[in-house]
Design a protein around this nucleic acid. Structure first.
Lengths: 352, 352
DNA sequence: CTGTTAGCGCATTCAT
DNA sequence: ATGAATGCGCTAACAG
């Protein structure tokens, strides 16, 4: 009746008693074992008993206690997704894709968000594992390899979008960042651009790979002398200055590490009075909702978040099914051309 | 050693055995009760035993099983957040704010995403409640009042951003949508606009309230004859046509239901060759990251996601602390003026 | 005071 | 179709 006054977070005792399997058993006049069997559709339950039990359960509003069941079974039919960002559409699109795929398998998804703080991310992973999720999808490159390896020993773990290091015991699904970057550069080249800069605020693995891809593509095109990287990692506010410097130096094409940064470039360019794509071209990465919504529409390297998410769930399933060798899947990115870049044809016309 | 081959999702048995309290007890040569007491810092544990136990726990890498503990205590130090959208920045900003506030209370946050499907949202709510979260924050107006009321009987529940109906037993935190709408309209009026349309794809409670606010403000200004609502609920693709019609009819100011729709308006306007803010003005709602990042910067009604999230956690805490009366908090919105609208001063200059 | 035993919380599962 | 055992940790009652 009265609520216990814990220091801050006490257990509430004034919540109505939740019916347990015992209540149902008593109500139906059978043993709780039989209730358990009946509720889970076991064949060896008499018709009469079955209906009586179902009615009782319904009448009492019984729902089995997941904690108790999970404790016993060591299985929850739930998978966890750990995110380091809720604000990057690409991350949330992957999460949504995982959820969609999981739903088809009859699995529920729990999300945990850890900001970019390693300690919090680690704590979230532990929380989900402690809750006995049947598998874990990690959409973050901020988590330490050790933490991932430890997690991988407790449950199947798939990391999405973490390139570079392969963590033993942990599967991964990635897009080919280097190749994706070269798609962007090649598109610029085809449109006649030669002064192509790369904009990146991050040296996270995927960012580093895209940068490598950029440098390699420039190199291949014989433009390595023209390469410039606009590094925003130290001061994100510096972009307008960095951009106007680059523009002054003749750069007219900007390949950004992701869509968010590409929009920053477009915004800064607009503030500087430059027209996209007439004056400069911009390409992003991820092809998230941001790219579709932007004006002009942002040309972007598509990572196929839906594919990545679905594949992650597949990997979890096969791992749960007993696979013991690690799988590292690579999904080929594709360029989604919109209007933030001149088309190759137009460039040819201009040139001709 | 061998993995059980369940139909699809079987229990993996090749995961290493996780040390239990019994293992620690055996290792330290004491009873498991003493281990429990020692680990939780109980005073009545001898110094010698305490250190031995802590060492053993450490050596074995023991972590208490949350499921077992929660089952026993009925408390998890975890709160759940249910979202119907991962793609609307406002929603995720509220979630992040809840997380931040929860962290200060020593609480972990689990997120669940249910799309806009009622059945899935309901299932997620049940899942979180089954996991014995200590409280639930619902950031969705798509959940039925009955489901919320039921949830409110199981655990403290706060809904954020759901206006209209007050659900008995459930607290709420809202911004004043009608007032927020009037802030937008008044800003347009001050800038000299009189042909102000409202763009909305939703008649969800908050959308309806903003619409009412719009109509009332127009009415107050004696412009009720000029009111027009561009309804996108039936066909989101129709916006370009609807917009060009409105423009043809002389409308030059558009108040959108939220930032996402405001950006749609800006994009469509750009496609139609209209300049913002020179040719038309646009105001959004939420003042999410989208508004900051847009170019021109989007003038938007600020909901204060951080405040809403923090307040939600406060309400949960006081409810857990024993409060039994419902609280419905209202946070006053404010207009964040950016460059998608002409300034009142400019308008005066134009007029003079 | 220090530490132990027994039993609980709830559902599943095995042997009867 | 059932009682007992099980999973793991917490806690009231009790013994040294």
């Amino acid at each position: 009746m009265v609520t216990v006054a814990g220091p801050l977070w006490g257990k509430m005792v004034d919540m109505p008693h939740r019916p347990t399997i015992n209540d149902v058993a008593a109500h139906a006049g059978v043993s709780k074992s039989l209730v358990s069997l009946a509720l889970r559709g076991d064949a060896g339950v008499g018709e009469a008993a079955r209906t009586r039990i179902l009615e009782s359960a319904d009448a009492l509003g019984y729902r089995s206690n997941i904690l108790a069941r999970s404790l016993r079974q060591g299985r929850t039919m739930t998978i966890g997704v750990v995110l380091s960002s809720l604000t990057n559409p690409y991350h949330t699109e992957v999460a949504a894709a995982v959820e969609e795929a999981a739903e088809h398998e009859g699995l529920s998804v729990l999300l945990a968000h850890g900001t970019h703080r390693r300690d919090r991310l680690d704590a979230r992973i532990d929380l989900l594992l402690d809750l006995s999720v049947d598998g874990l999808v990690v959409v973050s490159s901020w988590i330490g390899a050790e933490a991932l390896e430890r997690a991988g020993r407790r449950a199947p773990v798939v990391m999405v979008g973490r390139t570079e290091d392969k963590v033993p015991g942990v599967d991964s699904v990635n897009n080919d960042d280097e190749h994706g970057a070269s798609l962007a550069i090649d598109h610029f080249l085809a449109a006649g651009h030669t002064r192509i800069a790369h904009v990146s605020a991050s040296s996270r693995p995927s960012g580093a790979a895209r940068r490598r891809g950029y440098l390699r593509a420039m190199d291949t095109a014989g433009l390595d002398g023209n390469a410039r990287i606009i590094d925003r990692s130290t001061d994100a506010e510096a972009l307008p200055n960095q951009l106007s410097e680059a523009l002054a130096d003749g750069f007219d094409a900007f390949f950004a590490r992701n869509d968010v940064e590409a929009l920053d470039v477009m915004a800064a360019a607009a503030d500087l009075g430059h027209e996209v794509p007439e004056s400069i071209g911009v390409i992003g990465y991820d092809d998230s909702a941001l790219a579709r919504r932007a004006r002009p529409g942002l040309t972007s390297v598509r990572q196929h978040a839906e594919v990545l998410g679905a594949r992650a769930v597949e990997l979890l399933r096969s791992r749960i099914g007993g696979r013991s060798d690690d799988i590292h899947d690579v999904v080929e990115p594709r360029l989604r051309v919109r209007t933030s870049t001149r088309s190759p044809a137009t460039a040819a016309d201009d040139a001709g």
